[in-house]
Amino acid sequence: MRMMRIVSMLPSATDIIAELDLLDSLVGISEDCNWPPEVAGKPIVARTRIDASGLTSAQIDQLVNDSKSESHSLYAVDAGLMSELKPDLVITQDLCEVCAVSSGDLTTACPIGVEVFSMNPRSFDDVVESVIALADKLGVHERGVAVADAMRAKVDAVRGAVAGRRRPRVFVAEWVDPPYGSGHWLPEMVEAAGGVNVLSKPGEYSFATTWQAVLAEKPDVIVLAACGFNLQQSLERTRDLRLPVRTIVVDGDAHFSRPAPRIADGIRQLAHLIHGDVVADPGLPYAELSLEKVGTPR
Rank of each mutant, 00 (worst) to 15 (best):
R143D: 07
V158A: 01
W35E: 07
Y286H: 15
R159W: 07
D281E: 13
L95Y: 01
Y286W: 15
D21N: 14
V116A: 03
W211S: 02
S71E: 10
A287E: 13
R242K: 15
P285R: 10
V45D: 02
V7Q: 08
V7Y: 06
R169T: 00
Q59L: 00
K137G: 07
M82L: 15
V98W: 07
D105A: 08
S67G: 10
L186S: 00
R262S: 01
I267Q: 08
V245D: 08
D61G: 04
E142L: 14
G113I: 05
Y180V: 03
R246H: 05
P244Y: 02
R165Y: 11
D177T: 02
S73Q: 12
V39T: 09
A135L: 08
S8A: 10
A135K: 04
F207D: 00
A153Y: 11
T247R: 00
T107D: 15
E31Y: 06
S25P: 01
D78T: 09
L10Y: 08
S200M: 02
L20C: 00
L241T: 09
P36A: 13
G203S: 12
V190F: 09
F229H: 01
P178Y: 03
N197G: 13
V45K: 00
S118E: 13
W211F: 14
L85D: 10
H272G: 02
W175F: 09
D61S: 15
A161I: 11
A213T: 05
F229P: 02
G54Y: 10
I267H: 09
S8W: 09
L289Y: 03
I222Y: 01
E38P: 10
V64P: 09
C99T: 05
T247W: 05
E129N: 15
E217V: 07
E174G: 01
A100H: 01
V116Y: 00
E292M: 14
S67M: 07
N120V: 06
S8Y: 09
D277C: 11
R5D: 10
M3C: 06
V114T: 15
M119P: 07
